[in-house]
Amino acid sequence: MTKPLLELKNLWGGYPPIPVFRDVSLTLQTGETVGLFGPNGHGKTTLLRTIAGLQDPWDGGVYFEGQRLNEEGAMRARTSAHVNYDLFRRRRIRAVDAVKAGLIYVMQGNLLFPEMTVEEVLAIAPVAAQGRPGVAEMRARLDDLFPRLAERKTSKIRYLSGGERQMVSIAVGLLAMPRLLMLDEPTLGLSPKLRRELSVAVHKIRETGVPLIVVDQNLEFLTSLVDRLILFDHGAITHELPAAEMPDHATLMRMMFGEGAA
């Protein structure tokens, strides 16, 4: 059996002292696209931020292609009033290592670099992918994926609309030559037109075989995209649904909130 692409083993995390997600275990095979769905404020983003190396995991393990990314062992509770032992230990996954391995996270509502132009940002984006082939082709493909960006090449990021900014974020992620791309609410707060444009682009990315983890609140978009839908509730995985069992909105509400919720 081949090694899974991403494996989370009993992962805990949050903002001390509040745990946000608890005991999350998840396996993702190469070539698979997974959707994460759940109410706001229930830990989806925190989970992805932890995997990407922006926050400390509290306990458990993150494995990418069989390699452990985080340090072993649970976060120690503060054992003395004066010494915080975790200050001296590096619990966090090194974001640079994660990115170099090809684990790319596209932040939710990413503000990117407000004072830089689209061109400048895309020029430094492939820094993580250096030495890996395909960057040039990927750059060429971006014009096809996001024709809008070619028009706005010389604009500063701060003058872009939310949708365009999201496109730059995804483009930056793609230029890092991802082996797994984690998209956090790519359609958040967008107009229907831009949302359609973006979902077309995400579908195209999926067709090229890049494995995806997509968090989104738009159920239609998610169910049409993913091989497996994971329901996330109160910081834990409650259901895993294969493609054949994609629920419609009403069934989903019933599953998550009980009878009569829809």
């Binding site: 990117l112 670099f113 020029a123 930056v172």
Partner: peptide
Amino acid sequence: SRIGRSMRAVAQNREAAELMGLNV
């Protein structure tokens, strides 16, 4: 320059720069 641009990127948004793989 690439390093100069990266420096500006880190200055403007550290988290996004980290996620880009820049060595902060």
